[in-house]
């Protein structure tokens, strides 16, 4: 393969090198590139900065002078108001209760399936993989009506949900997130696991290690970068989802963070500055996750590609 052909030219270098760390030949026109990239990045940030600017201004100011004007008083008042008026802490917690178990469940389930299809040679592996992957590609609207009916039929014990049903319970939302997102993660993880050399598990088998130990002690730790990448993407998707709870949760107090915003969005009267502040606050958790896992994000998605 290509590797053999090019190996003499340059020995492989570790990927996560600091910039300029071992630069041999500096490419020309770097300034131009910076200029271009900085412009684009700024352009991309502009809409967000505009929202931040709006959120910092009192409604009285903007309704009088317009939004495209110099500020007469910048304050965090909108943020405190949004925080207090919408019951945001409560809804944040609801979203955590939905997102964290969903992401972990998705990763665990898909790791299991990926382990199965990538490390063992069963006849139905490819069909299975296709079933999982295709499941994630179904439009969510296709599922909602029968799912709602199904949820009304599944009883839950009182300690799990006061609705006594899968319907109107956080568990129901977690379940559909896991089932629906599993396909995507299985796909990524199975590709990732295939890149783990077979010798590793063979050695384990020779040592007489049980399969479950192989899974938990060898394969899962090796998949950490992929987990980080998937955790980022899935957190973003699941946290931001507003579709499933719309039909599957009826108690206002159980709804996720998107509801807090809807509460700010008055039926008749809306204060855009307040909404901007509220909306920006809801974006903080995903931003934190992204920044925390950013280093692994790209390398985790980098799996066995580029050998066409």
């Amino acid at each position: 393969m290509t590797t053999t052909a090019t190996a003499p030219v340059s020995p492989a270098r570790p990927r996560d090198e600091p910039p300029y760390g071992g630069a041999v030949s500096k490419p020309p026109r770097q300034t131009g590139r910076h200029l271009m990239l900085a412009t684009i990045a700024l352009l991309w940030l502009l809409p967000l900065l505009w929202a931040v600017y709006t959120s910092l201004r009192p409604y009285a100011d903007t309704s009088k002078h317009g939004y495209l004007s110099w500020p007469r008083g910048i304050s965090l008042q909108n943020y405190t108001d949004a925080w207090n008026q919408s019951g945001m802490p409560h809804f944040f917690w609801n979203s955590v209760l939905i997102t964290v178990p969903s992401v972990l469940g998705t990763l665990l389930f898909s790791a299991a399936v990926a382990f199965f299809v990538s490390r063992f040679d069963f006849r139905w592996n490819i069909a299975l993989l296709m079933l999982f992957t295709a499941g994630n590609l179904l439009p969510a609207q296709v599922l909602i009506t029968p799912l709602y009916r199904l949820y009304l039929l599944v009883p839950l014990p009182a300690w799990m949900s006061d609705s006594l049903l899968l319907y109107n319970s956080t568990w129901g939302i977690i379940a559909i997130h896991i089932a629906y997102q599993c396909g995507f993660c299985t796909f990524v993880l199975s590709n990732y696991m295939k890149t783990i050399p077979g010798e590793i598990s063979e050695a384990a088998l020779v040592d007489g290690a049980q399969v479950w130990r192989q899974f938990f002690q060898i394969i899962l730790p090796l998949c950490r970068p992929a987990f980080a990448a998937l955790a980022t993407l899935e957190s973003i998707w699941i946290y931001n989802d507003f579709f499933w709870p719309l039909a599957l949760i009826e108690t206002g107090d159980k709804r996720p963070i998107t509801s807090a915003l809807a509460n700010l969005q008055g039926q008749y009267f809306t204060n855009p500055n307040l909404i901007a502040a509220g909306a920006l606050m809801t974006a903080v958790p995903t931003l934190l996750v992204y920044f925390a896992l950013q280093r692994q994000f790209i390398s985790g998605l980098t799996i066995g590609s580029g050998k066409g």
């Binding site: 990239l37 991309w44 809409p47 946290y239 974006a283 931003l287």
Partner: peptide, 30 residues
Amino acid sequence: KLRFTRVYQTAIFLPMVLSLAVVGLIWEII
């Protein structure tokens, strides 16, 4: 190998990280 590459990446990827509510709001006020 580029200085600030991560900054650029973050700026351009940021819209994906933002919740839909933010995206809707941002374009609404634009």
